Simulated assay, not measured.
Amino acid sequence: MGGVPAIPPPYHATAVRPDWRDLPDGLRDAITARLGAPVVAARTATAGFTGGFAAVLETAAGRVFVKAADLARQRHLTDWYAREAAVLARLPAGLPVPRPRWALDAAGWYAVGLDALDGRTPRLPWEPTELAAVLAGYAEVSAALADPPADLTALGLPHLADLARTDILWWGEVAAGREPSPPLPPAARDRLPELVALESRLPGYAATAPGLVHGDLRMDNVLLDRAGRAWFCDWNWLCHGPAWFDLAGLLVTGYAGGVDVDALFAGHPATADAPPDALDVTLAALSGYYLTAAGPPPPAWTATARVDRLGHPGGRPADGGRDRPPDVSPLLWAHRRFSGEQALGWLADRRNWH
């Protein structure tokens, strides 16, 4: 921060991934056999921050979106992909989400095939029609997850209240001297006690929510199809929690785009039962979560680093360090900084920290 506004990363072009031709021959052969026809075109996904394979594969029989990762070197990704496939297979019918088609392992890799969506990430700053489509789509999703089916909850999903305590709440760590303070703008430099008090309410609020939430709802996990409908992707962090948490995380990215985000949050069906300070509590938590991890990337990548529940390297390991797992986009740190500044700036405006 420090007076220089963060620039959003190009969310449509953040990924560093292997291409189809980079995969082991045995894996490509197994995928081709499962598709039932040779791959005639492969379009690698350019969005995202992890380094797993992700591409739309086209054959004479149609198109499939395939994710794949090395079972030994990228075990966290293979676990995510398997969990996402299990979630997608059990989400209520009719929702705008891709559905799984198959899964396989070959040549030491795990792969899952999903419906291929013909879409793109929304543009920043938010365009009114695109934002309206995304908010309408999330209203549909949040309503369906307010009373989720039993086979979905039977997956043993985590609770946001627990995840908040272990991975999200970082201002308390800063106040206790266990985490370095990130650079803060003048308006927020003396607000650490208030930030700690606000974020500390999140676990209690989340614990009372009866439904499920996406858990990682950012604009780069949304695709708009050619008809303008919003589709919601990357469901590996589904958890028990309040829908307003998802909504706040989504709107953070559009905070500086001239949009009345306060009104959009307050008027959305997902906030019908939200506590009066739910938005401030979530913004405090997200700002600390992002900003404490937004420093320069560590010089070395390590395969043992913890990867947290919002899909980013981080978390709270025993030694207090947050190293870089392998195959992470170098733009991840720009994403963290941008998101953290957006959240803290929005909170500062709401609380008149000027």
Rank of each mutant, 00 (worst) to 15 (best):
P5A: 13
P8A: 08
Y11N: 06
T14L: 05
V16P: 04
W20F: 09
L23Y: 03
G26W: 07
G26C: 09
A30S: 14
I31G: 08
L35M: 11
A37S: 15
V39D: 13
A42S: 15
F53P: 01
A54M: 05
V56C: 12
L57V: 07
A68Q: 05
A69E: 02
W80N: 09
A86S: 15
L95T: 07
V97I: 09
P98T: 01
R99I: 08
R99L: 10
A107P: 07
G108P: 10
V112M: 03
D118E: 14
D118C: 04
R123H: 13
P125V: 01
T129M: 10
Y138S: 10
A143C: 09
A144D: 05
A146Y: 08
D147E: 15
P149W: 04
T153Y: 11
L155W: 10
H159P: 08
D167C: 06
D167I: 00
A176H: 11
E179A: 13
Y205F: 03
T208W: 01
A209D: 06
V213E: 09
H214D: 10
V222E: 01
G228I: 03
W231N: 10
L238F: 08
W244L: 11
F245W: 13
F245N: 11
G249C: 12
G249I: 00
G249K: 07
A256I: 00
F265T: 00
H268V: 02
P269N: 09
D273F: 00
P276Y: 02
A278S: 12
V281E: 02
S287F: 00
G288D: 07
P296H: 10
P296R: 14
P297A: 14
W301H: 15
A303S: 15
A305D: 07
A305P: 11
V307F: 15
L310F: 12
P325H: 09
D327H: 11
P330G: 03
S339N: 10
A348Y: 02
R350I: 00
H354Q: 12
H354P: 12
